[in-house]
Design a protein around this nucleic acid. Structure first.
Length: 594
RNA sequence: GCGCCUGUAGCUCAAUUGGAUAGAGCGUCGGUCUACGGAACCGAAGGUUACAGGUUCGAGUCCUGUCAGGCGUGCCA
């Protein structure tokens, strides 16, 4: 089903073209800024009038004469400086809902794209041997949501988890691991009497880096481990694998916990590209793009200046011969273009890396490794801040661990469930607490503009009012409650919905809700076009609000037989839309009761 | 120094990319209750969109300058 907004855009653009006799006309149809203006407004006439040097309102009248939208709208009106206001016919809304109802299990009236693209989404990217912290949360869930939206719209999405598994930090980790093994052996044979127990990876990393900083001989050993590892020494490699696997045991349960679709097969860590790095440098040198400067090998992409106003280097090989993330990113980019056949690559990382990606893209384009029709986008996001406005830290100044943060959210949600609904059995309570707690954290992140920083607050995100996950979940649970109640009253919902041939939308609250339901596709399009989940959350919030209005004004089960089927449909589609938006696109669970 | 980003109600955030009278929630004040789930609903007060100019029929959004904060800026990622 083609979105109404697209139909209007086409028809009004055509009417504009007919009115002035030129083809470059854009109607710029948007949702109306105020309900009193109708449902949609076309903003394009005023810009066109400027180009044509005519009076906007007159031109708008002219456009309307050439416009035929009788099948979908009430007569269009010219308003203000030259807007064209459009109000949809109630009949159209009713027809749309019936149409949506035909496939409400899957598409909910949302069209698939006619131009599917192959899109690589590079996201999450945790560092091996380090705990995931809140910074990783944003990349992970925003990336996941972008993938889900693009997939739902019919694009081919290739998830790429570019994990940090090949940096110089592996020297100290491996060296430390070797020491541990030695000590363990000595302990087993009785040579030493105690075995320093390391409780988790976090501590392992901390101890290794402490030793690295304080013990020169260990540091030396660490450096030699890196060299050995990179030349394929089997002992080093086995330690490396052990450490990477150890990390996976922490990372994957977190993905599962937060409902992120990211599997082992999506992993293309830095180590994956290790064999391609030397040829990246060699080829760039051959093309004359990479040159030596102060001992390092650099590309100087056009348009970037350093502090002295001289060309800014994109360093691809250090003076000691080691490669950097720039090199790996270039290799990854080539792999994605050449082997994965992409139309688009999205990098979901924080805003601080903006310059890096601008230089990466510029370098790759200079090398002609990526053609002009391939889109490269840095889908950046702001930082998560504490209540004091500074980057979120624990009291002792450390990064807040993601696992602990999630546990606390679930715990707090649990307390609310206990208070509100003490009679539920324990498993139910746990299930609700998990859905609400995790959902709240994710939703709070999604509902902010991706590019801005936001202040993390448990109290705000777990609030049941406002634009929060629990508010949406609550609306869903209330509908499910109506459905349960229907059974006790011998109302056969399926039967009533199946027999529905026309809708009876007379109450303003009904029509409002119906219109909002019919716009789900528009919301997803808008969110997917700019990779901005907050457009989707804003829509879901509006939907839940419209439902609340409907719910308080329009009894469903007690409605007469002329109204009840329509209202049951409104409930059914609202529940399905909320569920789809939350669980399929945002990865947030819904619950039948809460 | 240079570059990028940010500055919107007491607080936390929106504003579909230049559209109409800048919207929500929290907090404050005032209402609704025999309730298909009160984790709800309705209403009010609260704004010179940091400041000063400019472009435009129209500016929170674009341009210039100022102020404040953040980030980045050659061998971390």
């Amino acid at each position: 089903m083609k979105p109404v907004i697209d139909i209007l855009e086409e028809r009004i653009s055509a009417a504009m073209a007919a009115a002035v006799g030129r083809s470059d006309c854009a109607a710029i149809v948007r949702a109306a800024t105020d309900p009193k203006f109708g449902d949609y407004q076309a903003n394009g006439v005023m810009a066109l009038a400027k180009k044509m040097k005519t009076v906007p309102r007159q031109l708008a009248e002219e456009v309307i004469k050439n416009l035929d939208v009788d099948d979908i709208c009430e007569p269009p009106e010219v308003a203000g400086p030259g807007f064209i206001n459009l109000r949809l016919k109630t009949q159209l809304i009713a027809d749309k809902l019936l149409e949506i109802n035909k496939d409400s299990e899957h598409r909910l009236g949302v069209e698939q794209t006619s131009q599917p693209k192959t899109v690589v989404v590079d996201f999450s990217c945790p560092n091996i041997a380090k705990q995931m912290h809140v910074g990783h949360l944003r990349s992970t869930i925003i990336g996941d949501c972008v993938c889900r939206m693009l997939e739902f719209l019919g694009h081919k999405v290739i998830r790429q988890n570019h994990i940090g598994d090949w940096g110089t930090q592996f020297g100290m980790l491996i060296a430390y691991h070797r020491r541990q093994i030695d000590i363990a052996a000595d302990y087993a044979t009785g040579k030493v009497s105690s075995f320093p127990h390391v409780k988790d990876l976090e501590e392992f990393y901390k101890k290794a880096s402490e030793l690295y900083g304080s013990d020169a001989s260990f540091a030396e050993e660490a450096r030699s481990c890196v060299v050995k590892l990179q030349s394929g020494n089997p002992v080093m490699c086995s330690s490396w694998e052990r450490i990477v696997d150890w990390s996976r045991n922490e990372i994957y349960p977190i993905y599962e916990k937060i409902n992120v679709i990211l599997k082992r097969e999506d992993e293309r860590g830095e180590s994956f590209y290790k064999g391609m790095l030397s040829s990246v440098v060699a080829e760039l040198k051959k093309k004359g793009l990479a040159v030596e400067s102060d001992g390092a090998v650099c590309v100087f992409p056009e348009g970037f200046k350093n502090k002295e106003g001289k060309p800014l280097p994109f360093i691809i090989q250090k003076s000691d011969g080691a490669y950097l993330y720039a090199t790996t990113d270039l290799a990854a980019l080539r792999y994605r273009v050449d082997e994965l056949g992409v139309d688009k690559i999205l990098y979901v990382t924080d805003a601080r890396q903006k310059l890096h990606f601008e230089m990466l893209f510029a370098s790759a384009r200079m090398a002609k490794w990526v053609s002009d029709d391939i889109e490269l986008s840095h889908v950046m996001f702001g930082s998560v801040l504490g209540e004091d406005g500074a980057p979120l830290k624990t009291r002792s100044g450390e990064n807040v661990k993601l696992k602990e943060l999630l546990d606390e959210a679930v715990e707090r949600a649990k307390a609310v469930v206990e208070e509100k609904n003490p009679d539920l059995d324990k498993d139910k309570k746990d299930e609700i607490a998990k859905a609400v707690g995790i959902g709240a954290v994710k939703y709070a992140d999604y509902s902010n503009n991706r590019t801005s920083d936001y202040i993390f607050s448990f109290d705000k995100m777990l609030a049941m009012d406002g634009n929060t996950a629990p508010y949406m979940q609550y609306a869903y649970a209330r509908i499910k409650s109506i459905e349960r109640k229907a059974q006790t009253r011998d109302v056969d919902i399926e039967h009533e919905l199946a027999g529905l041939k026309t809708l009876n939308l007379t109450e303003p609250a009904e029509l409002d809700l119906a219109k909002t339901l019919s716009r789900y596709g528009e919301a997803i399009q808008a969110a997917a076009a700019d990779y901005r989940p907050n457009y989707l959350t804003a829509y879901l919030y509006e939907l839940a609000q419209k439902f609340s209005g409907f719910y308080t004004n329009c009894p469903v089960l007690d409605a007469g037989s002329d109204k009840r089927p329509t209202r049951l449909l409104l409930c059914d589609l609202t529940a399905k839309t909320i569920k789809h938006g939350l669980s399929e696109l945002l990865g947030i669970e819904v619950v039948e009761q809460m």
